[in-house]
């Protein structure tokens, strides 16, 4: 397991480069993870997605499917792809401090 410093804090990462311990997550860490994913500055709309994913993960134990995400978070597919270019579910999960989503959809 690798460790890396984000927002002045050293955190453990899993094999995919996502946070190994969700307890390490903070909004500042989310911001630097986002920067690493090429997203400079998380907007209010990014936070809608990130917070929805964290909430879903806490209750269901896995990240939501992209269909559920677009239906329930209020962010539609087009916007989702423009907010997180090049892999919305994967990137949003990483920024949210969650493991890479396991589902196919």
């Amino acid at each position: 397991m690798a460790a890396k410093e984000y927002a002045g804090k050293t955190v453990e990462l899993d094999a995919d480069g996502n946070l190994a311990n969700q307890a390490d997550w903070s909004e500042d860490i989310a911001k630097s993870l986002a920067q690493e994913e090429g997203i400079n500055g998380l907007t209010e709309r990014h936070w809608v997605v990130v917070n929805y994913m964290r909430k879903e993960f806490q209750t269901k134990g896995d990240a939501p499917s992209i269909r559920k995400l677009t239906k329930e978070s209020g962010v539609d597919t087009k916007e989702l792809y423009s907010l997180f270019p090049g892999g919305p579910a994967k990137k949003a999960a990483r920024i949210a401090g969650l493991p890479k989503p396991k589902g196919c959809i």
Binding site: P85, G86, A89, K90, I105
Partner: peptide, 10 residues
């Protein structure tokens, strides 16, 4: 499913 999966992976 494969097309959607591709887009999700960028």
């Amino acid at each position: 499913i494969m097309a959607n999966g591709a887009r999700m992976e960028g």
